[in-house]
């Protein structure tokens, strides 16, 4: 089993407040890892450090190492990190001024791919991977990304992230703004995707974590309390605090 993301002693701040107090974690390649914990525990901050999105907040800073495929992300340009580590956000955020096609192609065009044929192929492939192709193939270049339903928009954002073929996909509560049926589609999608890439998903929904992820990490007040196989975490946690949380005693 290979390690895709290796986090060592990661600390993060907002202004003077320390939000993460030294996190260590090794994320298994081609598996899904869930990050759970009560709100404000630092789980979003944690995954935003993995692709250096954390530092886009002017107040924020971080310390420690994050290795993706063996390379320290703080040693390479943030732009390259984010291409290798894709991200899907809590609320779908397609570019409203671009067509569906242009949304998916946006990342590729940035990297200098302008060949029509290649773009067409990758756009189709990405939309298929995101299970959206059949629903949008006739309106690809006619409608804006914002014209789709919420669930479709989120899958469009997944397709957009997939198009640049990242090694790792970060998902920050990707289904929290969606209805149950759309949520189920996203979860199915995660099963498909983890055949090919590594997924780290933040969720406040423990059932979701147990459904989609092989590994789960439990965060509390900026600390990684416990990190283990999902099964172990949900059936036989070794830390009292994890047990309290999953049995609903707080949070």
């Amino acid at each position: 089993m290979a390690t895709a993301v290796e986090v060592h002693d990661l600390k993060a701040w907002f202004g003077k407040t320390e939000a993460l107090h030294g996190i260590n974690m090794a994320v298994e390649a081609k598996h899904a890892t869930a990050v759970i914990g009560p709100s404000g525990c630092g789980k979003s901050t944690f995954i935003r450090c993995l692709n250096r999105m954390h530092e886009t907040n002017p107040e924020a800073k971080s310390e420690g190492t994050v290795r993706v495929g063996g390379v320290d992300v703080y040693e390479m340009p943030a732009v390259d990190v984010r291409r290798r580590v894709g991200m899907v956000f809590q609320k779908p955020n397609p570019f409203p001024t671009m067509t569906i096609y242009d949304n998916v192609a946006a990342g590729l065009k940035l990297n200098g791919t302008h060949n029509r044929k290649i773009l067409d192929d990758i756009v189709e492939h990405s939309l298929q991977q995101a299970a959206l192709w059949d629903e949008v193939k006739d309106i690809l270049k006619k409608q804006s990304g914002a014209s789709l339903s919420g669930g479709q928009q989120q899958r469009l954002c997944i397709a957009r992230a997939l198009a640049v073929s990242p090694e790792v996909m970060l998902m920050d509560e990707p289904a929290s703004a969606l209805d149950p049926i759309s949520t189920a589609k996203i979860e199915d999608l995660i099963f498909e995707l983890k055949q090919k890439l590594t997924i780290v998903i933040v969720t406040h929904n423990m059932q979701q974590a147990s459904r989609v992820a092989e590994f789960t990490g439990f965060f509390l007040m900026g600390n990684l309390i416990e990190f283990d196989k999902t099964e172990k975490i949900f059936t036989n946690p070794s830390d009292k605090r994890t047990e309290d949380y999953i049995t609903g005693r707080f949070g």
């Binding site: 340009p77 732009v79 291409r83 990297n111 200098g112």
Partner: peptide, 12 residues
């Protein structure tokens, strides 16, 4: 790996 020239140009 992204093309080095392109990423240099984008940075510029």
């Amino acid at each position: 790996m992204p093309n080095r020239n392109i990423s240099l140009r984008r940075q510029m």
